[in-house]
Design a protein around this nucleic acid. Structure first.
Lengths: 251, 251
DNA sequence: ACCTGAACACCGTTCAAGT
DNA sequence: ACCTGAACACCGTTCAAGT
């Protein structure tokens, strides 16, 4: 997970003196802008939180936003992180495996809950405080499960990337449950001569609910992570200068 | 994998009579449009294959494209599928595991090879002939490895989705190897009080090359898939009408 | 000094007018 | 009948002009 957006972290607070004793309209602030952008996203999807739409919702011209937000991309990053605040990072209190699944399910639920958020998460490098909070919790959970730090460090990325991709995929209109969707039509219509396996297996390929697929996918990842050692630095490049510090294996 | 694009499969050939004995300019055709769009994508990324840019490259007005292509989204789907023609779906001739890895590596290489193609793949429901060819081959390979069809059907989706997401992530600018990137900066700058684990583990979190991560990820998936049974229709909803047909377990 | 209207440089798509 | 110029309805971003 964790994608682009020019340079400069937009999460450091900006100094913009709000007009004191201001007029009737709510004074602009980064807070208000991000909040209304998220509200628009929830109501209308990605198209709803465009700079001009957000400005219109706040009853200003689009130029005004640029005093508080660098960019449309920066606004998206801020909105994503605000939305990630709703993720329950505790994982509840079941078994270890259940806690991992619950944590990821919460992340997935948040991303799938508001339209466009999945795509947004996959198109943005998530480095806001709430993204870090999620990262920190999942990392802690994996370590608590006895997974070695070096492996857990790869595993966190993989788990989050998979969930993000699932949400983005859904958000873009894929659901294997919709019998009228293009995916189902393509599989049902696959030519038996060119694609014999797909044709032969079409019923099975389309079986299973979305929930079953997600649930199975998480188990695959957890099982795989538990059993796959991180490649032990086989062909590591020769250290450029000085001996490499031996990493302590903490915890 | 496999995402949106209004309705209607754009892969059925259109009937547009090309002007016979035409003028000096290459006559328009869907083929030419898709080919130049892909060329532009390779050279300039997603921004390069916009309708107006493609039309300009063909020395026409943007309206002309609409005779051969429904839509900007349809053009993207066509370009994606054309690009997928370069995937080597054989998997070479190593061990079974190696063939799965080689096949997926080829898919990943194609997606990563032209800028923007990863994002495009994640934003498009891939149902063109070359997408089906890839799907067919991977499915066959999994079955040949002794994986039960019901499980393989889930596995194909998961493997392709993961690779697509990896490519999209890269395409959006994430690389853990760039010490100046926002990701590295965020982890190195994570506050020790709020994010103790991230702070403590920052060196390890940023270790490992992109290649190592991908390679490990594929092993995790393959191992997980080999060991995780598909949930056996436990809480299946009561059949709406008539008894459900028992699916034959072919192969 | 702060804010923003209006302009700039773009998009995708449509449709009436041309050949 | 086929093709397309020009227009329509949008974008994000900038900057000079206002308060």
């Amino acid at each position: 997970v964790f994608l682009v957006m020019s340079a400069g972290n937009p999460f450091e607070p900006r100094e913009v003196t709000s007009r004191r004793g201001g007029p009737v309209k709510t004074p602009l602030s980064r807070e208000v802008i991000v909040a209304t952008a998220l509200a628009l996203l929830k109501r209308e999807g990605l198209g709803g939180m465009q700079m001009r739409k957000v400005a219109a919702a706040l009853e200003t011209g689009p130029a005004s936003l640029y005093a508080y937000v660098d960019d449309a991309n920066a606004l998206q990053a801020l909105v994503l992180d605000r939305a990630l605040g709703d993720v329950d990072v505790t994982g509840g209190n079941g078994s270890w495996r259940q806690r991992v699944r619950t944590l990821l399910a919460s992340y997935l639920a948040v991303l799938s809950g508001t339209p466009g958020l999945g795509q947004l998460a996959l198109a943005t490098i998530a480095v806001g405080p709430n993204a870090l909070r999620l990262y920190e919790s999942l990392l802690g959970l994996l370590l608590k499960g006895g997974i070695h730090l070096e492996r857990a460090s790869f595993a966190v990325d993989m788990l989050l990337l998979y969930c993000t991709a699932l949400a983005a995929e859904r958000g873009n209109g894929v659901d294997p449950d919709d019998p009228e969707g293009p995916l189902v039509r393509a599989i049902m219509g696959a030519s038996p001569s060119s694609f014999p396996l797909i044709h032969e297996s079409r019923e099975v390929l389309l079986s299973g609910t979305g929930e079953e697929r997600v649930s199975w996918g998480l188990d695959v990842l957890i099982n795989g992570i538990l059993q796959t050692a991180r490649p032990e630095a086989r062909a590591r490049r020769a250290p450029a200068a000085g001996p490499r510090k031996t990493r302590k294996t903490e915890r």
